[in-house]
Amino acid sequence: MKSRYTYLYGLKKGLPIALGYLSVSFGFGITAVGQGLSGIEAILISLTNLTSAGQVAGVSIIAAGGSIIEMILTQLIINIRYCLMGLALTQKLDKSFTTIHRLITSFGITDEVFAVGASEKEHIGTKYMYGLITLPFIGWSLGTALGAFAGEILPASVCSALGIAIYSMFVAIIIPPSKTNRGVLFCVLISALMSCMFYYVPLFKGLSGGFAVIICAVTSSVIMALLKPVREEEEELNE
């Protein structure tokens, strides 16, 4: 049976991610240059890191002249969620994922790429994964370049409206399964409530965004895994 998970299908799934990244990385480009980095440096960071929270934290460490150890620890803490995501994603991979493809595509695992890939109904192949990563990578780098070199190239009103794209896409991923699956619905609600608590309650203000996300996600997923374990037929993948 020919898989519908082609390179083109992956590209299509990656387009909204890329649009969202374009606006987020545009902001990153502006921030980085504002903190004293050159445009080329900002672009190099985006090309080699492909992550939002880690890069923003990294730039502030560079600007403050922090130590390499501080940089390593900060990146480790903020990005440790990718460990969990990478692990979860391995359960969705088909046999086309040999070591070399894993080494290459793991570079492109972002929160959004993971979420889209992991929410596919069937096993995914390398072609789909390369497709999924392509546009977000281009969008992320291009947005950084635009932000770093031409803050005025787009009207501010257009830039700010683009800011919602990525979140709307998240909504479009979590709502449909929440309608039909009570477990997903409660998991999403618990996680959202906790996230709002971390955001609004002054006591938690010091907690970094990366940490907050991991605490919300782990807590709500553990609760639902205990209360509503996924039945075999629900998560059974088409081999």
Binding site: M85, F170, C187, S191, C216
Partner: peptide, 21 residues
């Protein structure tokens, strides 16, 4: 663990979306 990993992506997205959207 399978159930946990099944829920994680939705939980991550939800935490990243709210209240930031």
């Amino acid at each position: 663990i399978k159930s946990f990993l099944y829920y994680v992506p939705y939980a991550v997205l939800s935490a990243m979306t709210f209240p930031y959207i």
